[in-house]
């Protein structure tokens, strides 16, 4: 097996959060000169995975599970607390996020944002938006810049006459194309797709997904595809990572993970997909309870404890490790 493109090893991000104190307590602390106690929010906790060249890896999980923090770590907008981020052999994690904008490696990781409208500067035309990374990272200008922007518009199916328009003059699908054109402009090795079709109508979604798949083949990129639409993940991804409260709880090839989920959380996620067919609705799993707090979690308790329908005493005494199963799969549950 050749070396993977992206290699994430034991990556962690912990945010300090102030603990709640009553007013008298705060006064007493400050009189006594005590520092306020600090808790740690474990947003991403000991996450390891790889993405091969030309591979599409899906990342699914509920909001608050640490998906967006993980994405910000991988695209180097945020510095990790711990762990490594290697891209094609170079150690990206060693470069500070604050310096990364000016680093040559910036062009290698790009991203398509969730809300195409929000991710476009309202005062930039489509051509300005697509040209921005080319100007900064490839030092293009003048006719060369214009030619490249037009080429990108053609590649993404954006009519050239729309290049002079502002975001508010474009439809949702057109804005999505501008966002994609901007992201592939500097020929990244890894493209992160953060729910690229969440705001689009189904008919437009199909076109955009097919465009993304075509571009991947044409340009030889790898994708990290973040989504909560599991139907779309199933269609687009080779492999899937399921995240819950900062940890990867299950991973495996899309084909087998969707037909035979091992982790109870994955089963619940799949059960929640709306089903038109009443036959398939039988025996579905609904999650009760409340997610555990990500602040100073007890290392001995399984993160899913409290919502898990099949938890036992053991789950509170020993947190399950992510263990390998056959067929490239891994799961972190005692009972899988």
């Amino acid at each position: 097996m050749t070396a993977p493109l992206l290699d994430i090893g034991e990556l962690a991000k912990r945010f300090p959060v102030g603990r709640k104190r009553s007013l008298p307590q705060r006064i007493a602390d400050s009189v006594a000169g005590r520092k306020p106690p600090v808790s740690l929010l474990h947003a991403v906790d000991d996450v390891s995975f790889t993405i091969g060249r030309g591979e599409t890896v899906g990342l699914v999980g509920e909001s608050g599970c640490g998906k967006s923090t993980l994405v910000r770590l991988v695209n180097r907008l945020l510095d990790p607390t711990d762990g490594i981020i290697r891209l094609g052999g170079s150690d990206l994690g060693a470069i500070r996020a604050a310096d990364f904008a000016g680093h040559p490696a910036r062009a290698r990781v790009q991203m398509v944002f969730q809300d195409a409208g929000d991710s476009l500067n309202p005062r930039y035309t489509a051509a300005d938006a697509i040209g921005d990374p080319l100007r900064r990272l490839k030092r293009l200008g003048g006719a060369a810049l214009r030619a490249r922007v037009e080429e990108l518009a053609d590649m993404t199916g954006l009519p050239r006459e729309l290049l002079s328009r502002f975001p508010h003059q474009l439809s949702g699908g057109q804005k999505a194309r501008v966002g994609i054109a901007r992201a592939i402009a500097v020929q990244p090795d890894l493209l992160i797709l953060d729910e690229p079709t969440a705001a689009l109508d189904v008919s437009v979604q199909v076109v955009i997904l097919q465009l993304l798949q075509r571009l991947k083949a044409e340009l030889g990129m790898s994708y990290l595809f973040v989504s909560h639409d599991l139907n779309v993940v199933r269609l687009l991804c080779d492999r899937v990572l399921v995240m819950y409260l900062g940890k990867i709880v299950e991973s495996g090839p899309a084909a087998t993970l969707f037909t035979d989920p091992k982790h109870p959380y994955t089963r619940a996620l799949l059960s929640a997909i709306p089903q038109a067919d009443p036959v398939r609705r039988a025996g579905r799993l609904r999650l009760g309870g409340e997610p555990r707090s990500p602040i100073d979690p007890d290392p001995k308790v399984c993160r899913f404890y409290g919502r898990c329908p099949s938890s036992t005493e053991r789950c509170t005494q020993e947190a399950p490790e992510l263990r390998r199963l056959e067929g490239e799969r891994a799961v972190s549950c005692h009972f899988a």
Binding site: A98, A101, M111, F113, L120, P122, R136, G179, V186
Partner: peptide, 17 residues
Amino acid sequence: DAGFVEAARLSGNGEAR
């Protein structure tokens, strides 16, 4: 924290820009 600000950073714009 707007999307277009994050996008600008990804496009290689430094803080001043």
